[in-house]
Design a protein around this nucleic acid. Sequence first.
DNA 1: CCATTATGATACCTCAAAAGTATTAATAAG
DNA 2: CTTATTAATACTTTTGAGGTATCATAATGG
Lengths: 299, 299
Amino acid sequence: MDLKKLRYFLVLADELHFARAAARLFIAQPPLSRQIRQLEKELGVELLVRTKRTVKLTAAGEYLRREAAALFAQVAALEGQVKLVGQGTLGQVKIGYVGAVMHTLLPSWLTELGRAYPHIGTVLEELPNQAQVDALRAGRLDLGFVRSPVAGDSLAAVPVLTETFSLVLAAAHPLAAKPDLALADLAGEPFICFSRDCAPAMVDAIFALCRAAGFAPRKAHETSQINTILRLVESGLGWSVVPSGVADGYRLNLRYVELAGSPERAEVSLLYNPALLSPAVRNIVALFTQLAKGEKKGR
Amino acid sequence: MDLKKLRYFLVLADELHFARAAARLFIAQPPLSRQIRQLEKELGVELLVRTKRTVKLTAAGEYLRREAAALFAQVAALEGQVKLVGQGTLGQVKIGYVGAVMHTLLPSWLTELGRAYPHIGTVLEELPNQAQVDALRAGRLDLGFVRSPVAGDSLAAVPVLTETFSLVLAAAHPLAAKPDLALADLAGEPFICFSRDCAPAMVDAIFALCRAAGFAPRKAHETSQINTILRLVESGLGWSVVPSGVADGYRLNLRYVELAGSPERAEVSLLYNPALLSPAVRNIVALFTQLAKGEKKGR
DNA sequence: CCATTATGATACCTCAAAAGTATTAATAAG
DNA sequence: CTTATTAATACTTTTGAGGTATCATAATGG
């Protein structure tokens, strides 16, 4: 069964007159007669009763007429949707992210994404840096928000957020009350450290900050999740240094001291695989690059 | 977009190899390449990335592959269903009936219909005789259960039920207590009559019964619904004669006396329009004719 | 009742497009 | 550097869809 034959049948079912239907289809009457008979032969069913100079649909014809119309609607919808996928305005995009960005730019950027491309769906997954890099290479992920720079060759990176670091300390800690609290004050205190495996560049930057303050931190605990670091700090188990942005995200009993004086910065980049660049991902990268420019200007 | 091209694409998307896909489609490789490129041109979208000796689907290709598979499933289902409609095992049939048969054979016959043809749906409508005849002629109805015989030329009738008549009287009526109650006893009493317009043959038979008993009934009230007749009789407004079958249907305070002695009979026929005979209706007529034979043998 | 008209079917021809064959270009592998 | 693999290209063949002319049949009008 061919869509052309079905289209012919639909017009004929509408006109119930071979010559008029053929005219509407811009073909002559005999080919129409033939196509319809072929369709009937294929289906093994009479679709029309041709009698007494008048053409009438059989029960099977009525049924086909009703259902075929629905089928054509679906085909048309499918064609349109494939075009939209090709243009990158329809689709599903898998996005990975490090936990911290959920407290900074991700929610508002996803809102913008929904506004700009309402028919693009997202699958979101919080993942450590390296897992995202692997997933992007393998095509299991379309986009990643990672702590940059990453070693990833073959992956493209767009810096989207640059943050200062902040010293963080339990509000209940004896030193928290000190007005001009600085990094050097914590030289002897236990340090809660982000895992170097997950974001080496960021950890290196934090250690560089300490070195500039004249000491090497005493590493007491290590974890790969910002949330865990802050909970440990709040519990009085030590102090830490985190990107300043997370201060807004978690409402805990903590004292933050921004370390804006030093040149060290924590950077988040948007990562994607240029070899597997779908139109939707291309559009999103463009949108997010634009948003990143706005953020920088906005500050 | 053509189903043939779509089928080619589906196989290619499955194989991701032009030569193998072409072999599976029993065509040579160049025509397949051409058809796929035509499909891409029609849709205005790249469906495949042909690079590095390896073929890969784009996002649009992935989308089309998924949706096209569903589309083919629908087309196959449609083809099957049209065939079933042609065979008369799928469809919807409009059935009219006079009220009385709802208390005799209709419920059990519809159960049998559901068992024999589970995919045939029915639209049931209680209608007087003449309305059914008109609707059958106009094609608004496929089948009718009527009091026969009917004047209807051009309609085919199959007798399906022959009933004796029963005299009916309110249980509270003075005469109801009489043990050997007969028609002649009611000569002077007011008679509740079925409308002759609706089923002339049946009313004529009832009057013939009275004439045989030696009197002409004194018509007090007239209605076209059995239910109304029985209610009026129960209220003591008069007596009537009805087909015996209805005695089982209505549980009212009535006394029935079967008039089996006379040759008069009430007959129900299955009526249909042979000019508009769909396969489903043909099957149902055959089934019901069979059931009617069983009923007759069963008695 | 016959001539006329309307309508779908049939016979035959034409042509476009789909499929086939041979070959090429490009790339990966040894 | 050669060989093998794979899709694309050029060209030919074949199929089948569409066109024209005509026929058969049934409704319509005088």
